[in-house]
Nucleic acid binder design. Structure first.
Lengths: 106, 106
DNA sequence: TTGACATGCAACCTTTAGGTTTCGTATTTT
DNA sequence: AAAATACGAAACCTAAAGGTTGCATGTCAA
């Protein structure tokens, strides 16, 4: 698997496993082994997913002794936000609805 | 290929071809044959992509004589918006920057 | 009613995605 | 020094994704 090919972000978040990883890493950074306890697959598989997220610059790595802590790096999500914003003009009323829903969530 | 399995939207927009289709259909609805003139692939291939977008409810179809007009149906993108909103808290400053950028686009 | 057009389905092929196990190498701990 | 831990790379497998061509069908125009 390639090193720094910067695959597009849309592909990176397409996989539900990777989306869950982002959610977990948002709460708290952690090394691979610990992260992989949340998934029904091998550590190596988790490691591969992390590589993809890392290439897309959605997570960053910080080496600390023998472990490497992975951390959410949400800046690249802006690209997604921008893409979305183009389509917002087509459903403005619905957006107002959602805004209301989110604000009154609890 | 399945009929109405409602594949998740993240997977539907993962493919660059499908994203371009959404952009084109946003500008104006059109039948398969016309849409496929924008892509270096067969009409059947385009038709398959449309099926995926249709299953994800990102496009709707309206039969009109012997042709079927495909049309953007952006409502489902709300799911994406909701997902994104969770991560916004982690880059509020950048968001402000983007907001400024978008507002002063022209 | 015959010919052209618009479309989707079926069968097939090739590449990629996601997963496994095995191994090598740092780093810690004892 | 030796044993344990954390990790990624390599080689491999299977299923799914994206593409092709060749029908079959429905509709429109002559």
């Amino acid at each position: 698997m390639g090193a720094k090919e910067k695959p597009d972000i849309f592909q990176a978040i397409a996989d539900p496993t990777r989306r869950k990883m982002l959610t977990l890493l948002a709460e708290c950074e952690m090394p691979v082994t610990r992260l992989s306890q949340h998934f029904p697959m091998s550590r190596t598989a988790v490691s591969k997913h992390l590589r993809i997220l890392s290439d897309a610059e959605l997570v960053s790595v910080e080496k600390s002794g023998r472990e490497k802590r992975y951390k959410l790096q949400p800046d690249s999500l802006i690209e997604l936000k921008e893409w979305l914003s183009f389509f917002e003009q087509f459903w403005e009323n619905k957006m107002a609805m959602l805004k209301h829903y989110v604000e009154n969530e609890d």
